[in-house]
Amino acid sequence: MKQVEETLRQEVAKLLEDGTIDVFVGHEAASLPLKTSPCFVRSPKEVDRLVWNRICTSNLATYLPQLFKRPVGLKGEWTPPKVGVVAKGCDSRSIVGLIKEKQIPRDRLFIIGIGCEGMIDRHSVGRALGVVGLADAKVDDKSVQVIGTDGREKRIDIADVLAASCRECQHREAVLSNLTIGETPSSAPEVSHYANVAEFESKSPQERWEHWVGELSRCIRCYACRQACPNCYCEECFAEETAPKWLGVTTDLSDVFVFHLGRAFHQAGRCVDCGACVAACPQGIDLRLLNQKINKDVEELFEAQVSLSLEEAEALSSFRMEDDQSFMTEP
């Protein structure tokens, strides 16, 4: 990993030096253990800020559209910058989606793909620690060595604290890139895909209802899930529209349900299961189950996966005669 990080820095320095890019979007260390922060590197002198490790969890695609927006109030000519970005499998798929949805221009992007063995979920580490905080952590290939704020040490198997999305990830290499570095990741895990959804679907309506009441009554409407999601770039989210008003402003269950169900529907055929929404949630709500249900339906109804290439049409923005039409009713 150190080696990959070094190569990344060198490559980015070159790209900035020869003018291929104006700014590079990567991860840098944050001050707390097991946390990184997105960073925007503009000069070869700054490349040492870039890190590559098992906690580069956030989906950097989210940070791209803003760079291509004309600065407010700027008069006269403006050329959008040339932007470099480092991409895991999921980031690259989100980038593909954003290009197709015309939120970012392919020709101003330089994507460095890195194969990914899965990222650590900080919430899971927190849960392993219980009620105390995380004072320090060291990560190696197989384990995370943590020290709690109570001074107690603990060694945790990395497999036990991988993000849920990463455990089932089938696309660990960038699907679109200008350059790839690092080694080919080990083959995708042989897990039963959508096991969580299948298990959930087998429950009674009452149990399912209770599950979501339990989860969503935790929601504080902070919208971190939405803001961290590359697909949630709407200038005005339906959740905040006032005419028409789709939902109220409270944390009443009915309002929270409408928000989450609405957002899930807006992810149909677009969610790449990057897990950014789950990682961002300060309340540890399992939004993945909802998104995966939609992903499973799209996959089963249209035999399609989301954003795997620029060329292929996306399931919900194309029409094929053989598409499932069972949900249609006669007029």
Binding site: S37, F40, Q66, Y223, A224, R226, Q227, A280
Partner: peptide, 13 residues
């Protein structure tokens, strides 16, 4: 500002 996602987390907690 580029880093900040514009959520309500910091204010709400």
């Amino acid at each position: 500002g580029l880093k900040c996602l514009g959520c309500g987390t910091c204010a709400y907690v």
